[in-house]
Structure formats: C-alpha cells, structure tokens
Simulated scan of single mutants.
Amino acid sequence: MSPRALFRSVAFAEAVTWTLLLIGLFLKYVTETTEVGVRIGGGIHGFVFLCYAAVTCFMWVNQKWPAKTGLLALVSAVIPYATIPVEKSLDKRGMLNGGWRLAAGGEEPHGLLEKLQAWVLRKPITAIVVALIAVAAVFSFLLFLGPPDTWFA
C-alpha cells in the first residue's frame, strides 16, 4: 500500500468513527435512550484515533513534513471530520506523493526515527505484530482509565 493510500484510508476511517461516536453521544445525552452507542462508537473511535496518530507520525517521517504540517495533521484528529480537509489539502499540495523512501533498496536511514521506520518497512510482519500489541496495550490502558471526563474527577 502506498503512503498516500494508507493515509487517505486512515483519515477517512477516523472521520467515519467520529460519526459513530457522535451518534452514540446523541443517543446518550439528547434522547437519553442508551449508552451502548458511546461504548461501542467510543471504543472504535479511540482505536482508529490511535491508528491515525501512528500513521500520521509514520507519514511525517516518510514525507519529511515540516513540524507545522505534522502537528496540523495530528491535531486534526481531535476536531470532528477535520482529517478529511487536511488529507485533501496535503494530497492537493503533493505532500502524500511518492513511495516508502526508507524501504529495502531505498534511502539509507539517518537518525532514530528514520532507522525505526526503515526497520518497520523492511520487516513488516514483525512490525505489524509489535504495533498491534502496542496499540492494544495503549487502548487497554485507556479503557482501564475510563472515559476522559472521569480522569480528573
């Protein structure tokens, strides 16, 4: 999968999961009928949010985005549906073009982040297993903490 296809897919999925969460919030707080939508939509959205953040950081390194661009892409996940216009803007400006520059046979990595990315691209199955375990661990920890509105209560 190309960097462009990966980023576009995850940006779209992040926006879709906002819809699930917002529907759940509507059912819980407006109609006061059920909390199931928040539990399910919130969980799915949280998982996809973490995936979007990881993919955005990966793209940031691969595409050599300036700090402002990388931070904007990360922050866009916090605002409902903002990942779509950010993705469209990056695509229009050619900032999603190209392949995986640090893949086998590509550029030589420099620095810790590029070396990590090169390892991921050169050992994708091992990296996917490690990433899934890491995301599941973070996700489980966040579930253990409970909804964000209860963290400081």
Rank of each mutant, 00 (worst) to 15 (best):
R93Y: 10
L20S: 10
A54I: 13
I40M: 06
G41W: 00
E14Y: 03
T31W: 09
F12L: 15
L116M: 11
I40N: 02
P85I: 02
L72N: 02
T150R: 14
V36I: 11
W65N: 08
G105V: 05
T69G: 06
V48S: 05
V129T: 11
V138T: 12
T19M: 14
E87Q: 09
A136M: 11
A54G: 11
I125S: 13
A5M: 10
P147W: 15
S76Y: 07
W18N: 01
A153T: 14
T126Y: 13
A103R: 06
I128A: 15
T34Q: 11
T17L: 04
A118V: 03
V78A: 12
L72Y: 01
V130F: 13
T56G: 00
C57T: 12
T17Y: 05
V38A: 07
K123G: 05
V78E: 00
T69I: 12
V130K: 07
M59Q: 12
Y81F: 15
W65E: 09
T34M: 04
G41S: 02
I128L: 15
I79E: 02
K123E: 15
V129I: 14
G146F: 05
F49A: 11
F26D: 03
L22Y: 01
P80V: 07
L96R: 08
E32R: 14
L142P: 08
L21E: 00
T17I: 03
M95E: 14
F47A: 13
R122H: 09
G43D: 02
G46Y: 12
A134H: 07
V130I: 15
I133H: 10
I40S: 01
C51W: 09
G106S: 06
A13V: 08
F49L: 10
L96V: 05
G42W: 05
V130G: 08
L121G: 03
